[in-house]
């Protein structure tokens, strides 16, 4: 569809600024791709340690995203629907991990779930469960850093659902669960998808909190970003190639998700 010419004519300077923005975003990736020693790619990809890092990354990032949906969506719902004294502080605390250096987040997680942590000591004493420096820790670290993005997106989406629709559904005989599943969720679907993509992307690239709370054990907690970091210490080539793998995986997933899901949403919207 061609847009109306008058509407789509860019104000002076906008295009120039956009070009600068695109260069700042795209050039680093291009520059890296130019320097990649492609001939070493098969060796890197078939390397056992790297493959396990890739699989671990995919697994933990997906789990962290699912956890964000399972408990982050309810948090967003509550923040969007209730107001009580202290709510603003609570909301700020929920999104605090977005501005916190991830390493600090990792340290905070150790204080909670580490062997001597506030909760962790009892998990260890009573159940013999240790979380820090396990794969679960990698999932939680990614969740801690990525879930706030999901919460922020979903909170504004829930708040934007017309309250009259919720009231009318109740009045038509729908219980709160029915309203949530049949009215609110379908209406926030586009935001849900955007939130999922954003959250997963953030979880996949997570580094600081993971290395602090989960450690960097090859085959156990060494996710792909950590493997890149480790490879960087021994030489650039392997690190570059691993980065390319990370970029390729993210790119394929993001593009396919976006075209698959958002096209459905767009079709609906245009009907």
């Amino acid at each position: 569809m061609r847009r109306n010419f008058a509407v789509s004519q860019a104000p002076r300077g906008v295009i120039a600024a956009a070009v600068v923005g695109l260069m700042l975003l795209v050039l680093p990736v291009l520059a890296m791709l130019l320097r990649v020693p492609w001939s070493a790619l098969p060796e890197i990809v078939t390397d056992e340690a790297n493959r396990s890092a890739l699989l671990l990354s995919l697994r933990t990032s997906v789990l962290a995203t699912l956890l964000s949906v399972a408990v982050g969506a309810p948090v967003a719902w509550l923040i969007a629907h209730y107001s009580f004294p202290g709510m603003r502080v609570l909301r700020a605390l929920c999104v605090l991990p977005m501005v916190l250096p991830p390493v600090v987040g990792g340290v905070a997680l150790i204080y909670v779930l580490g062997k001597n942590g506030v909760v962790g000591q009892y998990l260890w004493e009573w159940f013999g469960i240790r979380i820090a420096f396990t794969e679960s820790a990698a999932v939680l670290a990614q969740f801690f850093v990525a879930a706030p993005y999901f919460i922020v997106v979903m909170e504004s989406a829930f708040a934007n659902v017309d309250p009259a629709l919720v009231g009318v559904s109740r009045s038509l005989g729908a219980r709160p669960w029915h309203v949530l599943l049949r009215v609110q969720f379908p209406l926030v679907r586009p935001a849900l998808i955007a939130g999922l993509v954003l959250t997963w992307a953030r979880a996949l690239g997570e580094f600081g909190a993971t290395i602090t709370f989960a450690g960097n054990t090859q085959g156990r907690t060494q996710t792909l970003p950590l493997a890149v970091y480790t490879a960087l210490e021994s030489g650039r080539d392997a690190a570059l190639l691993l980065s390319v793998v990370l970029i390729a995986v993210s790119f394929i997933v993001l593009v396919s998700l976006k075209s698959h899901w958002t096209s459905g949403v767009l079709r609906r919207g245009q009907q």
């Binding site: 009231g167 109740r170 009045s171 038509l172 005989g173 729908a174 219980r175």
Partner: peptide
């Protein structure tokens, strides 16, 4: 509200 059966 869902038990009131009021047409709103």
């Amino acid at each position: 509200p869902e038990k009131r059966s009021v047409g709103l």
